[in-house]
Nucleic acid binder design. Structure first.
Lengths: 161, 161
DNA sequence: TATTGTTATACTCTATAACTATA
DNA sequence: TATAGTTATAGAGTATAACAATA
């Protein structure tokens, strides 16, 4: 049962996989960031926020944005403030709860995001150009499996006895 | 030939794949960062630097570290300074070139990194626990294909006519 | 009391560019 | 001149915690 116990390094495959995935993600992300900055003068979190809003014509509340972007609330406020200043998004009152807002794209924001999204998609398509459609699908599915299992496993700090 | 041309969104599969990969990487990375901080009082770049040195008993030069970590030189200096202060790495003179150093783990650094690496591997193994060994292998291979193609494609700002 | 969102703050990480010293 | 590494600086990105207004 334990004949391969060697202190550690018993599952190096998962580790190699993770390092490769991390490296690749950083490569692509780095390119996307620099292109967003050069071509559109924006940043990834700003692009991400607008992307969250694109398919929600009614907008999203701040806490929903925060959850989807996996970032704490204060940061969403800051990014939203910038985009409001530039006229790309707007805060709408929520009826029935005067504490909350909905954030949504302005027409200008929607237009500008369209331009960016088109370019962004080209960069991503190019990045995965080495794979056949079937391989893209397989990769998508495998990652989905990992993600689901990850989310279902709350994170065990203590071994459950 | 162009009957599906619709302005954009012609290759949403690659985009969906990328978003899933990015989300998953961020999830795992966020957990690793917070665990490294809580359990060892360190950060991912510091861990990364030590990991680069672990299998190089003779150490690595600053510019080699910079390249492997995909970070510019100034940052490597800063991280190395911290680790030197804590006695975890040391700068060794390179004979024949008085401009350069080799950075290598001290015995203490090697020991401490061993502890961290063992834990780190457990976190990663747990993160990919939802996959069978064959699936881990398949994922590894697919990502390798993407990475190689990405590296072989210099990045075309202009369409090549 | 709890929740929504904002403000204030601090720290990590990063790139850029000017600099020193060797080569 | 070119290279190895450092220094200085600015900005992105983030978390934390205290706060105000409303529920």
């Amino acid at each position: 049962m334990d004949m391969e116990a060697r202190g550690h390094s018993e599952h190096p495959e998962a580790l190699r996989l993770w390092l490769r995935m991390l490296t690749l993600t950083q490569l692509v992300e780095k390119q996307v960031r620099s292109q967003l900055r050069e071509q559109f003068g924006t940043t990834l979190p700003r692009f991400d926020l607008m992307a969250q809003l694109e398919r929600k014509p009614k907008g999203l509340k701040m806490n929903e944005l925060s959850r989807r972007m996996m970032v704490t609330g204060g940061n969403v406020t800051g990014i939203t403030d910038q985009l409001v200043t530039e006229g790309l998004v707007e805060r709408i009152e929520v009826e029935g709860d005067r504490r909350a807002y909905r954030v949504r794209l302005t027409p200008q924001g929607r237009k500008q995001f369209g331009d960016m999204a088109r370019q962004h998609e080209e960069w991503i398509v190019a990045a995965f150009d080495g794979l056949s459609p079937a391989e893209v699908e397989a990769l998508h599915q495998l990652l989905g499996k990992v993600k689901q299992h990850f989310n279902d496993t709350p994170l065990e700090t203590e071994p459950t006895p």
